[in-house]
Design a protein around this nucleic acid. Structure first.
Length: 140
DNA sequence: GCCAACGTTGGC
DNA sequence: GCCAACGTTGGC
């Protein structure tokens, strides 16, 4: 199983909206960046991801699971763009903001820190566990 | 709201 | 195929 990070502006698509979709989940559409798309192509059902609020909040608020592999993005006819479906798993009891991440030695190499603009990013297992621990999740 | 960083586009 | 110009993103 691999780990990822999905970034969204809460004003466009928020954690609460994702949670409201329940187990049916929702497609992670609207990605128009090759690197991000390529990451989604690598995803498999059962992979886990963090849900990150960009812009004003700048914090990891919950975890998600990939429930469908890459398929055409329904919001465009342009066949270059694909997306996966994800569902919300659980909120972080303590959301982890960007400042906290930057202060952690173990998280200094996160893509979120190194390339903040990439909207779908890989996360290492070590980073995943570290953030779960910080956020109060034992299931990570 | 500003601006740096990055990705994409299009002229040559 | 290079690179300048432009648009977008997201941290600050």
């Amino acid at each position: 199983m691999r780990y990822w990070l999905f970034k969204s502006e809460p004003s466009t698509w928020s954690w609460d909206q994702q949670v409201a979709k329940g187990d049916a989940g929702e497609e992670w559409d609207g990605v128009r960046n090759y690197q991000a798309r390529n990451h989604m192509r690598e995803m498999q059902v059962g992979d886990r991801g963090f849900f990150y609020h960009s812009q004003k909040d700048r914090e990891i608020v919950g975890t998600v699971e990939v429930i469908a592999e890459a398929h055409p993005d329904s919001t465009t006819d342009d066949e270059r763009w694909e997306c996966v479906d994800i569902k919300a798993l659980e909120p972080l009891p303590e959301p982890i903001d960007l400042d906290q991440i930057k202060m952690e030695e173990a998280l200094a190499d996160m893509v979120l820190v190194k390339n903040s603009r990439l909207s779908v990013q890989p996360v290492t297992k070590a980073e995943w566990k570290h953030i779960c621990r910080m956020g109060g999740l034992t299931s990570g």
